[in-house]
Design a protein around this nucleic acid. Structure first.
Lengths: 160, 160
DNA sequence: GATAGTTGATATTTATAGATGTCAACAATT
DNA sequence: AATTGTTGACATCTATAAATATCAACTATC
């Protein structure tokens, strides 16, 4: 019994660290069984936003690793190209999640295009201006595969 | 003046034929500058639904050709894989367009998955059961590139 | 301060998605 | 009745996306 409680606590501790950027890129690459270069490519393509230390070095959280595993699954198993994934991400109803204004939507590059995820843009003159997309619900709510359709479905039931 | 009216009429006549399946596959392939095999592949993948004559022969409308041009653009220019396009199509809020019921949504394979467009399914026990997806708004409203995001946006403003 | 790991940039490899080619049986057109 | 185009199935080609490798300069750690 007590061992179960103990193990549960350990798991909870691990979960507390879920969003802590504790793995350097080399470790992340080993854990994911891919190369460091691939991780940097995903970042260059705008699929992921790793944490950056003051020294500009990347650091990945457990949540980041799970997100990357989903991306790899989409590429390698579902055979969706990176540009396809970017387009799919661009369909996330960010405007509904961050509740941006009509005026924001008029000038938002992200709202008005469909090739890159919103977190690839700077969003000048919107509510998102200057905010850290890594900390945004749009980015965080989407770490599991198949989440995009759920997010779209959620718009419908909104006003109720 | 009268020539303008005449030409307008000609254009209107052409437009009337916009949805008429008048091109056999060979002609469609020539007009699109692709092979017959490619057209059949797109169909097998569920990207398009050509009209079928009683003899099982395919026939394509002008609207079909435009749709296929969009698909080709997505593949060749935007570098989105076919599986990517299928996934994107699966995100079209068909449930909102056909206004299907809560019960329908519970049992609809399309509503509950995200790998194939809804028109690839049979939708047993839903409002869509037995209907010709080629004639459905979900399919027809989506013949131009970039339409998917617009359809998603339209959900938000619905209840108003 | 020496070893190990990082940075970005450029070049190269490899796995495969997308597109064709060929075939015999069948259908449409003249 | 003969020509032309279609059907599906199987095999093949090719362009390129995804993943690596290599490099010199820089940073972290022991």
């Amino acid at each position: 019994m007590s061992t179960i409680i103990k193990e549960t606590n350990i798991l909870m501790n691990i979960d507390i660290l879920h969003n802590e950027p504790i793995f350097p890129i080399g470790t992340a690459a080993k854990l994911l069984n891919i190369s460091v270069h691939t991780l940097r490519m995903y970042e260059r393509e705008g699929l992921i936003i790793p944490y950056k230390k003051e020294t500009n070095q990347r650091a990945y959280s457990k949540a980041d690793l799970e997100r990357i595993m989903c991306i790899r699954k989409a590429i390698n198993e579902s055979k969706i190209s990176i540009n396809g994934i970017k387009t799919i991400y661009s369909l996330i109803p960010c405007w509904d999640i961050v509740k941006c204004s009509e005026e924001d939507r008029k000038v938002c590059e992200s709202y008005n295009s469909h090739f890159k995820p919103c977190w690839s843009f700077n969003h000048p003159n919107t509510v998102c201006e200057g905010s850290d997309c890594r900390e945004c619900d749009v980015y965080k709510n989407n770490e599991n595969c198949g989440d995009v359709k759920e997010l779209i479905k959620n718009i419908s039931g909104d006003g109720k």
